[in-house]
Design a protein around this nucleic acid. Structure first.
Lengths: 338, 338
DNA sequence: AATTACGATTGAAACGGTTCAAAAGGAGAT
DNA sequence: ATCTCCTTTTGAACCGTTTCAATCGTAATT
């Protein structure tokens, strides 16, 4: 037995395919009686409209794509969840791809997603120190609906929803200074990339505003933004600098820092205050709960989806860069409070 | 300027649309010269085939759906990554939906995904204590390609790839007993659900095989499988039972346990040995690295995708239940070793 | 009874590809 | 020059919807 099509339904219901289609789309021009009749047949046959034929007619797949560095860091997992919720409100589905922080892989996925017919794309930029962005330029040229989330590529026009990374770093640093810490370091990544640049800037400004001398050597550039990166950074600089305050660029990295300090027998926060960034789910539930900066994930995601649909549906967007406020969470890993 | 279609390409190249189509599909019946000519025009125009039209013709979207409880627990994030890799090898994309451990939500997403035309579905069953599974029955009736991952619904025929949960719990428990621990508890969920049932069974059997009396009251049924669940379970039973060994059903929960013990001033592992399950990324990098059971995520995922494509492409599948071996990771949160 | 008005229904074009039987073209043999 | 045989190419049918101008039916109006 072949596939059940709208024709079968129409034949059995004794109406035209147009009528069936309109019924299914809830058009008001079909009489109630006919609707009821048609729906009965639809249910009896277990008919479902063919999504491909539909998409072809409507030229929309009602699905959008998400490109993220990966989901091992649950920060991105939380973003994925929030995006899915926002997409579902608009009856859209989400496809996802993992870039592993490589713009090359990102380009490949963009291509794949275009071939799948997604209506728009949300991209969390890869933290790639030598990015090749031709694929993004392409998308912009063809005016493809695209919004960056959480960061953007500094060399390209942005349609971005992110949080105010600098201000989080600023407030955190100020509280560390205010708590009397004298030797604070920031473990960061390649300063040409926005997320690092912003945080470094917040860090610097906190010193400036506090009237304390800023030592650029206290910004440690680590290459991996992972646990291992944090671990290795401590390995490299601890004995030399003997910091009493350590700000890691994200929570996973901070966990690496804590783990290494712990194994060196250094007490947290008595000897060293540590803070992370992102407030991932596990940060608050660690043995030593982590002082960190919470990003407003769910609002970021709903704004991003909103902006994306503005683009998809051809509306003007008012602001191309939306920066939402963050909030610092003071926990036991630091003596700083506010 | 309208959309560029295959007709435009054909016209400019001076050939028929059939030829262009065959060229793009790499058919061997088109002469090299023509191919070259056509490709030139394609590139010049920046033509891309319309995915909707293609899907309609081919009746395949080259995309599959993943239904998972959520991505806050990075165990599922790691699964998503691994699945994406496996899907990409077959040039497929992945859509995802989040069930929040509710079969009702799962049903809704199944419906949505069918409407999107996914070719098949990978479902990580929701840990829902009163599941409504009619949507799954539907899928099975219509013979829709479907495989369960990580667990299955006990009341339904399974096409499942999972790990041998019981054996992990068994080995872990045995090592706890072997280390001389006398008062071991297991914090689990609703025993009617497969993942809990299996682990409880492994737990029980370890006592049996060790000739130590098994106390069913030492299986604590917690309602949330989250951090809070672990935290609350300790709150509830610690003072009464005073366990010296605690097995949590997953790592996140174990972190909740550790956090609560820590705040009570109880030392790990000196006073209490703790173990989790899953070996999520953060488990090894905690302040006190967690003894846990690693599931072979990447193999599970590639097997699941393999099985799914067997179903999609109409091949017979040999085994409906694949159980892969796990490996216990002994770390500092327990005195147990092997 | 004829006309009008309007809501309900029809039917065919359009969406943009793929596929394949049939036609065309070209080379080699007679 | 004609015939065969093979390789290329063509063109139309098809995939299953949506949409909308045109038509139909019915009831109200004159």
């Amino acid at each position: 037995m072949g596939k059940i099509t709208i024709k079968d339904v129409a034949a059995l219901a004794g109406v035209s395919v147009g009528t069936v289609s309109m019924t299914l789309n809830g058009s008001s021009k079909v009489s109630e009686k006919t609707k009821k009749n048609v729906m009965e047949i639809v249910n009896k046959l277990g008919y479902r409209r063919d999504p491909y034929a539909r998409s072809l007619s409507l030229s929309s797949s009602r699905s959008i794509g998400l490109l993220a560095p990966g989901f091992r860091n649950s920060f991105f997992g939380e973003i994925a969840e929030a995006l899915q919720v926002a997409a579902e409100k608009r009856n859209n589905s989400l496809m996802f791809g993992i870039t592993n922080d490589s713009t090359k892989q990102e380009a490949k996925l963009v291509d794949q997603f275009l071939d799948r017919g997604v209506d728009g794309l949300i991209i969390i930029p890869a933290e790639d120190s030598s990015p090749d962005l031709s694929h993004i330029r392409n998308l912009l040229n063809m005016n493809f609906p695209l919004v960056f989330l959480s960061s953007y590529y500094s060399s390209l026009p942005m349609q971005t929803v992110m949080s105010d990374l600098a201000s989080g770093a600023y407030e955190l640093t100020k509280s560390f200074i205010g708590a009397g810490l004298k030797n604070i370091i920031l473990i960061s990544g390649e300063p040409s990339l926005i997320p690092f640049k912003e945080r470094i800037e917040g860090f610097r400004k906190a010193f400036e505003d506090s009237g304390v001398e800023y030592n650029p050597d206290h910004v440690i550039i680590s290459d991996g933004m992972s646990f291992e990166g944090g671990y290795a950074a401590i390995e490299k600089v601890y004995d030399e600098i003997k910091p009493d305050g350590i700000l890691a660029i994200n929570d996973v990295m901070a966990m690496g820092v804590i783990s290494r300090l712990h194994s060196k027998g250094i007490r947290i926060p008595e000897d060293v205050s540590v803070a992370g960034y992102d407030d991932i789910a596990t940060s608050s539930i660690q043995e030593t709960p982590l002082t960190t900066v919470a990003q407003p994930i769910s609002e970021m995601c709903s704004r991003a989806v909103e902006m994306l649909f503005d683009l998809i549906e051809g509306r003007e967007i008012e602001k191309t860069l939306v920066k939402l406020p963050v909030s610092v969470k003071y926990r036991k890993s630091s003596i700083a409070k506010e």
